[in-house]
Amino acid sequence: MKKAVLWILMAGLLVSAFGVASAQESPIRVGSKQFTEQIVLGQIIVAALEDAGLDVVDRTNLGGTQVNRDALVNGEIDIYAEYTGTALYNYFNDVPWYDIPHEAYGHRVLGYSLVSSLDAAINDLVWLAPTPANNTYAFAVTSAFAEENDVYSVIDMADYVNDGGFVYLATGDEFAQRPDGIASFEETYGFDLTDDQLLIISNATPAQTEQALNEGANDVNFAMAYATDGALMAYNFVVLEDPFGAQPIYAPTPVIRGEVIRANPEIAGILNPIFRALDNVTLQTLNAEVEVEGLNPADAVRAWLQESGFIGN
């Protein structure tokens, strides 16, 4: 009996190993970080490439920034949408032969051309056309608070803080500590928040800080937010304007491995017009549809792509 089992096993393995022998083109693996806007962007890429008849593997909802970047550089995924600002700040600090000039952070074209050329030279990654959107960090307050204290921009906020108004700001640790985070606002608009005025939530996404503001937990009255966040609509919040551009530009842009775009050059032609059409309002609307109304991301994205004529029905 043992022998018979062994024979069956051998036969099965042989059949399977030499059953069909034809190499096929590897599918395109699409990644994304683990929050709503990234899922939306990832699903846009998936839907557009699938509609063009390409073989796509949906690896969206992958993890944090570092996991996606490592996966892309190491060839575990082929494409995902990254923000120009994130790349400028994080990915080229250990490049010994080039220092990123300070003015690149707030400059849309300069920032994009720098990250795209550096990534092409170092990692053989290609940055496709960027969106006109800017998903940068911002401060959010409730509309009641904005009306009462007449705070609609960071200039107003600086006045409010300097007049000794009560501030308790819910923020993630990254935004609180990075030089381009709160510190950059403070420098540009001339105010200073002490540590007692910050509620620092480790690893918090804007969704969590916004919820803290909405619930009024711990008397929070300001919250870190993303400018394109869909939840802002749900909570009836006001996003404070940043007229002096204290924040770098975070334009979502699909980044693809060089190998893959050379094998499928048509991808650029498919994705570029779509991402050029994704401005702040469009992105915020899509985010809100998913996050606030609870639509399935794939359905929401497909509906928008069809409406805009990017994909067929």
């Binding site: 089992v5 069956i8 099965g12 393995l13 069909v20």
Partner: peptide, 26 residues
């Protein structure tokens, strides 16, 4: 024995499905 035989067949099928489309050298 029937279950073990079935499991082996299933394993061979599964392995075949995963690897069947590629050449050994690839």
């Amino acid at each position: 024995f029937a279950a073990a035989l079935g499991a082996l067949l299933l394993l061979a099928q599964g392995a075949g499905r995963l690897l069947g489309n590629s050449e050994l050298a690839e």
